[in-house]
């Protein structure tokens, strides 16, 4: 009996110390692996953030370039060509003879009026003066009026919180106007719709904007419909003013965007 117990003790000692050591070693290996995974995940997240920031930066620069191109084109095509026309008219050989004629003067005046209007349009596009002078509501109405059909049926706005939107800080109001402008231009470009609805209201103490069109919509899962520059512009502007947004769209079901400003209403 004693002999059997003695034989077992060797085995037991090896089993006990070996078992515990094995436990510790496996624990350490698992721990190190877990740690490596954590580090890798962290790096991946960091890299993803960096590339997102880079992408945003690229979009900002690209849209700046596009904007410059557009202004250049507007100046060249509208103001430039009208001024050239005017010069040519004034330069004509028979000008002296016709100088006194009322028809020529009227043409000149028309051209000058057109140039004035073009310059106004360009500068309004660059920075809507109504926003600084009269606030968000008027600026939005001015924007809508410049786009709406003659009968005013394309865009319909419901603003329940005018008093609040007019008190928005300039940068926030400007960002929202730009976002709505971009959304409307997207809808007109791709959506082929006859109706756009914009509602601005108070959602649990936060300013919310619901944008909806009845256009053709698109499949958000489709790679072809990945965020274009317009959408990225919208995203970076909303990020800048700390606003959250959700998009709801499907082929044939129109497009809707819900924006919530994350700063509480005054």
């Amino acid at each position: 009996m004693q002999q059997t117990i003695g034989d077992n003790i060797f085995l037991l000692i090896i089993l006990c110390t070996g078992g515990i050591s094995l436990l510790v070693i496996s624990f350490v290996i698992l721990f190190i692996n877990n740690q490596k995974r954590l580090l890798k995940n962290r790096q991946q997240i960091h890299e993803a953030e960096m590339s997102y920031q880079k992408e945003l930066m690229r979009v900002v620069l690209q849209s700046q370039e596009e904007e410059r191109k557009r202004i250049g084109q507007d100046l060249h095509d509208d103001v430039g060509s009208s001024l050239s026309n005017l010069r040519m008219l004034i330069n004509r050989k028979d000008l002296a003879e016709q100088q006194g004629s009322g028809a020529v003067l009227a043409t000149h005046k028309l051209l000058i009026d057109k140039i004035i209007q073009d310059v106004r349009n360009i500068s309004h596009n660059l920075s809507p003066p109504a926003l600084a002078l009269f606030g968000f509501t008027v600026a939005l109405e001015e924007l809508i009026d410049s786009i709406n059909n003659e009968d005013g049926s394309l865009i319909n706005i419901i603003n329940d919180v005018e008093a609040i939107t007019d008190k928005l800080p300039y940068n926030m109001a400007l960002a929202l106007i730009r976002v709505l402008q971009e959304l409307i231009s997207n809808t007109i470009k791709h959506g082929s719709t006859k109706r756009i609805e914009i509602s601005i209201f108070n959602e649990n103490g936060l300013l919310a904007i619901q944008y909806r069109d009845e256009g053709i919509g698109y499949d958000p899962a489709n790679q072809k419909n990945r965020k274009g520059m317009g959408m990225q512009n919208i995203e970076s502007r909303l990020n800048m003013i700390n606003a959250a947004y959700t998009v709801k769209t499907a082929p044939g079901a129109g497009f809707a965007m819900f924006i919530v400003l994350n700063s509480p209403l005054v």
Binding site: C16, T17, I20
Partner: peptide, 14 residues
Amino acid sequence: NIGILLYFSGALFI
């Protein structure tokens, strides 16, 4: 720390 854990846990029975 690994060394310390391995030694003290393994030698606990001893």
